[in-house]
Simulated assay, not measured.
Amino acid sequence: MEEARIEKIKHQLQSQGYKLTPQREATVRVLLENEEDHLSAEDVFMLVKDKAPEIGLATVYRTLELLSELHVLEKMNFGDGVARYDLRNDRSRHHHHHMICVQCGSVNEIMEDWLAPLEAKLEEEFGFKVLDHRLDFQGICKTCEEKNRQKVPPIPYSSSTL
């Protein structure tokens, strides 16, 4: 499956006049191997260095930007000031959505496209054809919510307890 996706990305690059250089391929392989992790450019660089020590950080940045421009990757920011990269899913028309925990920073994906009825309504009522959308929910994940409930509340200070 990985080889088929690399071949598809190779064709996407070629259709825009680019080649899948060894450096780009190493970057794509790292992204495929860590697809669920929403890696930053620095994360990608550290993993690429293990495979191809000769590749520099600037090359990884340029590759990520190119793949983002060609819509192979989605460049995201989850509010922490760090750009993260996510491979576009071949199986869906739109980019998937995310649930981001504001306490622990965990990111979970929502693969279903719940906005299709809204897109149809936008086109019907406003003549607006949606090409893509992205939705990020920010809140508190189940694990953090359970930890919050388990915390013992402080004993209120009272002069009668002295």
Score class of each variant (00 low, 15 high):
1 M>K: 09
3 E>R: 14
4 A>S: 11
4 A>I: 10
5 R>M: 15
7 E>V: 06
8 K>G: 05
15 S>K: 14
20 L>K: 07
20 L>P: 06
27 T>V: 15
29 R>C: 00
31 L>D: 01
32 L>G: 11
39 L>S: 01
40 S>E: 07
43 D>Y: 04
48 V>H: 13
49 K>N: 04
53 P>H: 05
53 P>I: 09
55 I>T: 15
55 I>V: 15
56 G>F: 01
63 T>M: 03
64 L>W: 01
64 L>C: 09
66 L>N: 07
67 L>S: 02
69 E>T: 07
69 E>W: 01
72 V>F: 09
72 V>A: 01
72 V>P: 08
73 L>A: 09
78 F>P: 03
78 F>M: 12
81 G>C: 09
81 G>Y: 05
81 G>E: 09
82 V>Y: 08
82 V>E: 14
83 A>I: 02
84 R>D: 08
84 R>K: 14
87 L>T: 04
88 R>I: 01
88 R>D: 05
91 R>D: 13
93 R>P: 01
96 H>P: 02
96 H>A: 02
97 H>G: 05
97 H>Q: 14
99 M>C: 09
102 V>K: 15
102 V>P: 05
104 C>E: 09
104 C>W: 00
104 C>P: 09
105 G>F: 10
105 G>Y: 12
107 V>S: 06
108 N>A: 13
110 I>S: 00
111 M>G: 01
111 M>Y: 05
112 E>V: 08
114 W>E: 11
114 W>L: 14
114 W>G: 12
116 A>W: 02
117 P>H: 12
118 L>S: 07
119 E>N: 13
122 L>H: 05
124 E>I: 00
124 E>V: 02
126 F>D: 13
128 F>A: 12
129 K>I: 10
129 K>W: 04
134 R>F: 02
135 L>G: 06
139 G>K: 10
139 G>C: 10
140 I>G: 04
141 C>S: 09
142 K>T: 13
143 T>C: 07
144 C>H: 00
147 K>H: 11
151 K>Y: 02
153 P>Q: 10
153 P>E: 08
154 P>E: 08
154 P>D: 01
155 I>Q: 11
155 I>D: 02
158 S>I: 04
161 T>R: 15
